[in-house]
């Protein structure tokens, strides 16, 4: 049995028909993708316009300029911000994924003495999905102060982990439930312990889901704003999402600067995602074909 394979479409059909079908689906895919990407292209165009042209005449070609990027690069400590964001993202996402995986494994695979304990614990985690994050700001600020971690990376990392747990648990328990247990049972018969089962048996097969979780969590950390704006008051620790907000003032907004900063933040993320997901899916497909 294989975990997955890219479907090849209906096989025994005659060649021309199949090719026509493929061309049609290909065109449809490109068209849909184009429509989805269109607004992003629009922003890229806007980011090349001076702020006042954005408001009055965004189609104007002769005013195109890289000034916004020059300003953004000059006024933002880009390296520092990416460093901060990466530190916070790596720490919170890896720890978050590990603790969520451990909990999800226990919640789907391990045998509880009271069966209701399992479902109520799962619900305990999942209920977090319904909480708007603004509720957490005041109390977490106070906890960070009480723990003496206010003004450090940890002030952001710990709440980010907590916030990622409900989502991670939902995804991991969902996939673990759908996933056959035979593999682990075979490993137990081979005499594997809990750690080896998780590490060498379950985690490898969960790769696409883990990848999904990592990607979503990293994206969350890159874009998160309410917590950073409250918990980080030291500009040296600012993350990229704080950077974009710097273009907004009480009576002024530098739209061009915001668009440029947004593009500067967005592009590396897209590239990283493109590389990362291809890698994950390639590894997965190879494993499936060989398996």
């Amino acid at each position: 049995m294989t975990i997955s394979t890219p479907p090849a479409g209906p096989r025994p059909v005659t060649r021309p028909r199949r090719r026509r079908g493929l061309i049609f689906t290909g065109l449809a895919a490109y068209l849909v993708t184009f429509l989805i990407v269109l607004p992003i292209l629009w922003v890229t165009v806007l980011s090349l316009q001076p702020s006042d042209t954005i408001l009055s005449d965004p189609f104007s070609i002769k005013t195109l300029t890289f000034d916004n990027y020059r300003n953004a690069v000059a006024s933002l400590p880009l390296l520092q911000m990416y460093k901060n964001t990466l530190i916070v993202a790596l720490a919170s996402v890896t720890i978050g994924a590990i603790v969520s995986f451990m909990a999800s494994y226990a919640l789907t695979r391990m045998v509880f003495r009271h069966p209701t304990a399992r479902s109520s614990l799962r619900f305990y985690f999942l209920a977090g999905l319904a909480v708007p994050v603004y509720v957490l700001l005041f109390p977490i600020y106070r906890i960070d102060l009480a723990l003496g971690i206010f003004g450090t990376y940890a002030a952001l990392i710990l709440p980010y982990i907590a916030v990622s747990i409900p989502f991670n648990t939902l995804l991991l328990t969902g996939f673990l439930r759908e996933f056959p247990k035979e593999l682990e049972e075979a490993a137990i018969i081979d005499g594997a312990g809990l750690f080896r089962i998780c590490w060498s048996v379950v985690l490898p097969t969960m790769r696409p889901v883990i990848a999904t979780i990592l990607i979503f969590n990293v994206v969350y950390v890159f874009n998160e704003f309410p917590f950073v704006s409250i918990l980080i008051n030291n500009p040296d620790l600012a993350t990229v999402s704080l950077a974009v907000s710097k273009f907004q003032g009480q009576y002024t907004v530098d739209y061009g600067g915001m668009m440029a900063a947004a593009t500067l933040v967005l592009l590396p993320q897209l590239v990283i995602y493109a590389v990362f997901q291809r890698h994950v899916i390639a590894g997965l497909t190879a494993g499936a074909v060989k398996g």
């Binding site: 530190i87 790596l90 720490a91 890896t94 720890i95 994924a97 590990i98 003004g151 450090t152 990376y153 940890a154 990392i157 590490w199 060498s200 985690l203 490898p204 790769r207 030291n234 040296d236 620790l237 494993g287």
Partner: peptide
Amino acid sequence: RRQRLAGVVLAVSSLVALAACSSA
């Protein structure tokens, strides 16, 4: 199949947890 990804992830996370403790 050995899981390189997971190993890297764990190593990085412990490093970063240390870095996180350095204060402003």
